[in-house]
Structure formats: C-alpha cells, structure tokens
C-alpha cells in the first residue's frame, strides 16, 4: 500500500470536487423548494437592506430635532411621520433596525457559542453536568425580563449590556438543547467506535458530537434571535434598554406610548417591524429545521 502517486491524488481531488459540486446543487434545489425558508430568508434580506440603506436614503438624521414639525403624520417628506421631538420616524425606525437586529444577532451568536460549549461538556462529563445544570436551573427559574432588568440595573443602560443581559437569560435554554441531543449522540455506537479507534475525549466532543448537535442548535438559535429582539424591545420600552436618544424599536415604542391616541404612526411602524423581524426569523428557523432534517426532503416530493 504505497501512497503519494501525484496523478492519482489529483484524480482523487478532482472527483471530490465533482461530488461536492453535485451536493451543492442538490442543496440549492432543496433550498428553493422550501417555501417557508425562502420567505423567511427574503424577509430577513429585506430587513437587513432596510436597516443599512434606510438611513442613507432618508435625508434626515435619526437624531436631528425639529420641534416645528413634531408629531406629523406620514407625508411625502417624512414617510413614517415624525415623533414628539420632530425627528424623522423613517430614519429612526431604520437605524433602530440596526440596533435591534444587531442586539438580536449578537445575542444569538453568543448564546450559540457559550450554550454549545456548556451543553457539550455537561453531556460528556457527568460531574460537570450536575454543577452546570443546577446553575442553569437557577437562571431559568427567573422570568427572562426580570432577570434581564436586574442585570441591566447592575450594569447600567448600554447596548452592550443589553446583549449581556439577554445572553445570560438565554444561555440555559440553548445549553439544554445542546446537552440533550449530545447525550443521545454520546451513546451511539459510532462514538464508541471512534473511542475504539483511539480518538481522545477532545476529538470526540468537538469532531464527532458537535457536528451532530449543530442542526437543532442552529434552529434553536434563530428562535433565540427572535426572542432577543422582543426582549430588547421590552427592555427599551421599560427604560432599561438602549438609552435615549439612540433609536431602537423599543425606544420608539416608549416615546410613542404617551402620544398613542394622537400619533398612531409612532406605535404602528416600529411595532410592525418587530412583528416582521420575529415572523421572518421564525419562518427562517422552521424552514431551516426542514432543510437540515433528513426526514423531510421536500425536493423529492416534487
């Protein structure tokens, strides 16, 4: 069994490329045939574009006060109207999208990474499991909002602190999802087979258990993303989130609360965007679950 025949190695990598190309094609086909996922993705792309392009299109800065034009309804000039300081609502909602979705994304990424590490190690080492899971039980015993407000009260109102607060509140959820699927994977014969092949614990955890838990993790994380947006809005609405005058969807709702009977646009526009973002993420998560679940291959049904 002599190796390193260059021509053969090249032939091998060529074959590999072809197979990968085919797999990619199949994935695209499955993606396109998955209507939920396509809708969710399209909505997310729209929201992202809106959050970045919105402030550029608008001729108004989200922070410029114009008391003469306060509380105007939607017009050709101010598309979403103006708020109680005369600030342009369109550019505030658009920059608010950056803040709200940015907070949501950061929370999603952070909870995914930290929750994954905790979940994997808790599943693999039983002593660690007891410690980490009792700790997360304690965290889960608090309502999310209450916990987040308490953390905000300690850390002070900053966008970064919102991310920290919501992440801390959501880590136990993700850690438990990862732990439960890792516990199942750990007992599979192929893990024992890998041990029999001389794989170290580190290799088994990261190379073999992790990839098998990724699909429930990704799906769960999209929901955490959505929940984080709602939590951020709730925190800001309660005055414990992103500090004024920076816009976030929750902040704008808070400003609109006092004038809800005179200026519907201040509640409707940010509210609609929250709904849109959460809906988009839920559709995206559902679609992703179908795509990653080998049992529901929609491309075959067609």
């Amino acid at each position: 069994m002599v190796i390193t025949n260059d021509a053969q190695v090249n032939e091998l990598s060529l074959l590999e490329k072809n197979v990968k190309k085919e797999r990619r094609k199949l994935l695209v086909k499955r993606f396109v045939s998955n209507k939920t996922l396509v809708t969710g993705t399209a909505m997310l792309v729209f929201l992202t574009l809106f959050s970045f392009a919105g402030p550029l299109i608008s001729q108004f800065s989200p922070l410029d006060i114009d008391p003469a034009n306060r509380l105007q309804g939607p017009t050709a000039e101010h598309w979403f109207g103006t708020d109680n300081f005369g600030r342009d609502l369109f550019s505030r909602v658009a920059s608010g999208a950056q803040v709200s979705m940015g907070v949501g994304l950061s929370v999603a990424v952070l909870t995914a990474i930290i929750g994954m590490v905790i979940g994997l190690y808790a599943a693999y080492y039983s002593i660690l499991d007891h410690v980490l899971m009792r700790f997360s039980d304690a965290l889960m015993a608090f309502p999310d909002i209450l916990l987040a407000i308490a953390i905000m009260a300690v850390l002070g109102p900053q966008p970064v602190n919102v991310v920290i607060a919501v992440t801390l509140a959501k880590i136990p959820v993700v850690a438990r999802i990862v732990r439960s699927s890792a516990l199942v994977i750990k007992e599979q014969t192929y893990i024992e087979a890998m041990r029999a092949q001389g794989a170290s614990s580190w290799r088994i955890i990261w190379r073999h258990i992790l990839p098998n838990t990724v699909s429930p993790l990704i799906v769960q994380v999209t929901y955490v993303f959505a929940i984080a947006i709602i939590l951020e809005a709730a925190l800001s609405f309660l005055g414990a989130g992103v500090p004024a005058p920076d816009p976030s969807w929750g902040n704008i709702l808070f400003d609109g609360k006092i004038v809800i009977y005179n200026a519907w646009w201040m509640t409707v526009f940010p509210g609609a965007f929250i709904v849109l973002a959460v809906l988009a993420l839920n559709l995206f998560g559902d679609g992703l679950r179908d795509l990653l679940d080998p049992h529901s291959n929609k491309a075959i049904k067609e």
Binding site: Q188, T189, Y190, E192, R195, A196, Q197, G198, N212
Partner: peptide, 21 residues
C-alpha cells in the same frame, strides 16, 4: 489512546450505527 485503533482495533456488531452520519 495510542494503542486503540493503532495496535488493537475493534469492529462492532451494528454496522448501521457504527459510522458517524
């Protein structure tokens, strides 16, 4: 770790579940 797989190897009963999917 150096012995498993390198010096002594093992094959299992259930080939269906012995490979990582």
């Amino acid at each position: 770790l150096d012995i498993r797989g390198n010096e002594i190897s093992m094959i299992f009963q259930d080939a269906m579940t012995s490979l990582n999917p």
